[in-house]
């Protein structure tokens, strides 16, 4: 068990700063998600923590020890790769036992540990198979067992669910989170999928262009986005951003907070004329695409809503003041940020 800390960590590839001075603390036992679009530096950050990439500058501290200069094997970490990186010529048993063999552990103890890890992940019956004889989900579990078997201080997971089909991914999210709670090992999880991030992370670090834009709980990230990037990257459809008449601010509100409102403007309400030009029926909800003035906006109605807004017309819509976030139109930063703990 150990906390992970990066101090002013930087990685430069030629002219590009892939990771740009990141200070991050992942608490002991925490499930921390690095979320961001591809190329934001999240995988590079993870690989530096794992020792697979040498930082250009800064420090990495694991469990109070500066490991910046240490090779991967000395860091007591385990990593699960997007491709799972199982050794194709070895059986499942030998794949899981490989880290123990590298430690020159005695055979009987090896066997005990492999059996323990395999039973936690429910793959005891697959021990003699080769990776090519396994399904995607089974491979993922073998990769996890190989990571678990030497009881590392930290798990580093690089998009481990992206090779699974959509149905399997939902159950794998659940399994993975339960697994992490059970072994209570510090976990850093990289993904570009906000559903995975929101669903599994204790905290999420939203990254863009090598920097952390916001670090917080899933609810913080969703309800109190620190800037326009986070507001539009998290949430599907993203937060609506409507400029104020003087153009200095952007009013941000989520599609589900935007509703039809007949009658006069009331206290605590902002009203807009919303021209709807397309409706999307998604079963549990309905999305209305349209414009306020020149700005594209989306409204989301639950299927239980009694009102509708058929396309081709303009309707009075409103949003509660408490659901509006304000951003500086130039810098994109939040201007109404209250201290959130």
């Amino acid at each position: 068990m150990a906390a992970v800390e990066t101090r002013n960590l930087t990685k430069q590839f030629d002219q590009v700063k892939a990771v740009d001075g990141i200070d991050l603390v992942c608490e002991d036992g925490e499930f921390l998600v690095l979320l961001g679009p591809s190329g934001c530096g999240k995988t590079t950050l993870l690989r530096m923590i794992g020792g697979l990439e040498a930082p250009t500058g800064g420090e990495i501290v694991i469990g109070g020890q500066d490991v910046t200069k240490l090779p991967p094997r000395a860091r007591k970490i385990a990593m699960v790769f997007q491709s799972y990186a199982l050794y194709p010529h070895m059986t499942v048993y030998n794949n899981i036992a490989f880290p123990l063999k590298a430690q020159k552990m005695a055979k009987p103890e090896q066997q005990e540990r492999v059996t323990w890890a395999a039973s936690i992940l429910g793959i005891d019956h697959l021990m003699d198979r080769k990776p090519r004889q396994l399904s995607g989900g089974q491979r993922q579990r073998v990769a996890l067992a190989r990571a678990l078997v030497r009881e590392p201080n930290v798990f580093l997971l690089d998009e481990p669910l992206s090779n699974l089909d959509a149905q399997r991914r939902a159950s794998a999210r659940d399994e993975l989170q339960q697994f992490q709670r059970r072994v209570a090992t510090t976990t850093i999880y990289v993904t570009h999928d906000q559903v995975e991030a929101m669903g599994m992370g204790d905290r999420i670090a939203v990254m863009d262009q090598g920097r952390i834009r916001q670090l917080g709980t899933p609810a913080d990230i969703y309800n109190q986005p620190a800037d326009v990037f986070v507001a539009t990257f998290v949430g599907s459809p993203p937060m609506n951003l409507v400029p104020t008449p003087d153009g200095s601010l952007l009013l941000g509100f989520r599609p589900e907070h935007f509703f039809r409102h007949e009658g006069p403007a009331a206290d605590g309400l902002k009203t807009f004329p919303f021209h709807v030009h397309r409706e999307e029926y998604l079963g549990a909800e309905r999305l209305y695409y349209g414009e306020i003035g020149e700005t594209r906006v989306v409204a989301r109605f639950p299927v239980t809503a009694t009102t509708t807004a058929p396309p081709g017309d303009t309707y009075p819509f409103a949003v509660h003041d408490r659901d509006v976030r304000m951003f500086d139109a130039k810098t994109g930063e939040r201007t109404d940020l209250v201290a959130v703990t």
Binding site: G50, L52, P71, P72, R73, A78, Q82, A85, Q103, R150
Partner: peptide, 27 residues
């Protein structure tokens, strides 16, 4: 040989000769 496999072997704690004998040569 995929970079991921070499990375995995590094993280798994295999040194140069172990990687050579158990990963590279068999593959």
């Amino acid at each position: 040989i995929p970079q991921d496999l070499r990375d995995a072997a590094n993280v798994d704690g295999a040194g140069f000769f172990r990687q050579l004998v158990y990963i590279r040569i068999p593959l």
